[in-house]
Nucleic acid binder design. Sequence first.
DNA 1: TGAAAGCGGAGACAGGATCTCCGTTCAGCG
DNA 2: CGCTGAACGGAGATCCTGTCTCCGCTTTCA
Lengths: 208, 208
Amino acid sequence: MTRRDSVRNRERLVDAAREVFAEHGFGATLDDIARHAGLGTGTAYRNFPNKRAIAAEVLREATEQIAVDAREALEVEDPWDALVQFFERTGARQAADRGLYETLTGQGDDEVQARIWPEIVAAVTELFNRAYRAGAIRPDAAVQDIAAIFALLGPAFEMSRAIDPNLWRRYLALLLDALRPANQPDLPVGPPPVESLDLILRVGKRNL
Amino acid sequence: MTRRDSVRNRERLVDAAREVFAEHGFGATLDDIARHAGLGTGTAYRNFPNKRAIAAEVLREATEQIAVDAREALEVEDPWDALVQFFERTGARQAADRGLYETLTGQGDDEVQARIWPEIVAAVTELFNRAYRAGAIRPDAAVQDIAAIFALLGPAFEMSRAIDPNLWRRYLALLLDALRPANQPDLPVGPPPVESLDLILRVGKRNL
DNA sequence: TGAAAGCGGAGACAGGATCTCCGTTCAGCG
DNA sequence: CGCTGAACGGAGATCCTGTCTCCGCTTTCA
């Protein structure tokens, strides 16, 4: 039989991990998390074999929410609105959760990212294609640009954390404006090849 | 009298540092640089007291070029073209030089950044104001957005290094399109306060 | 040609993070 | 209650990584 305090402590640990990872990203140490939970390091390591394990636990639900966002967006009838809704929701999550942002951009746990990736890519492709066919997107844009836009938003999320929680919406709006059909000249360089999708989302990964 | 091999080695070291910092950023170790120069670590430390010193040497000229870009842009008569030219030139430098990019975004040597900053800010402000007064920029934009755009371009530079050296131009073009006056609705959030300029350029700085 | 300057790179040192160990505490059964 | 083993806490062992030093060996050049 498991002691009541033990299960309670496990929960506290997970809660603390959620908060600490959201605020500081994966740079945070397990000691930080234990401290934040009001517990000792030993307790943390009795409940989880290592840092990755607790991170995986916290991230599973967060990444799954992204997939949910994508599915829900697919139900919006107007193709452009659907795309915007996806950006909006997913952006909000990443702005609020640095750990999530790091995972999605490949700076976090590769395994978690690998598991959730295919589903998100499929949904986003669908989202993009619908809007593109409807003429809601400039003709010289490509799906890869959606991934790229998320990469570009990274710094905007950081700014949001430092300056104003809503600031990222300003730059999302700017980028979305740019995605719309326009009388601007064609983009000067073609989109990155589709195969480079994972590279795009891995930007910033230390790659000595 | 200094031995001939000694001065030659110093040059090799500086050249190696330039290349290594450009490619790997400041994460590179002095050992990496010495190796790349075909020399031993000891030699590196006999010529420079520490890593910062050699980095400062390499960066002085690079950062000064940015200021030159800004001054030259001010000489272009069309206000919008002037702004574009500055983005284009400075972007090219940062895309090619990761160390430079890190310095400008506050992830590198603070001192170098601090020295060059005021001049760049002044020139860019002038550049922006001219274009704004000429109506070449959407009315809800602000100078701070220029700094923000450079921050957003960071991931684009990384992509360029990983995928195609020209790729960043695509996203610069996208962002510049968005800056132009348009019939789009107003941006949903105001610009960050002017005082937060340094925060914007410090995005990504580890701030535990 | 020999002495002084320079070289090289193993390893001392420092900082920081992960994880372990064991004396102490306390939940919960009898 | 009182006992007992599961759970706790946190100091510190361990590992990793990067900076910098030290000193036996090599090279330059008067």
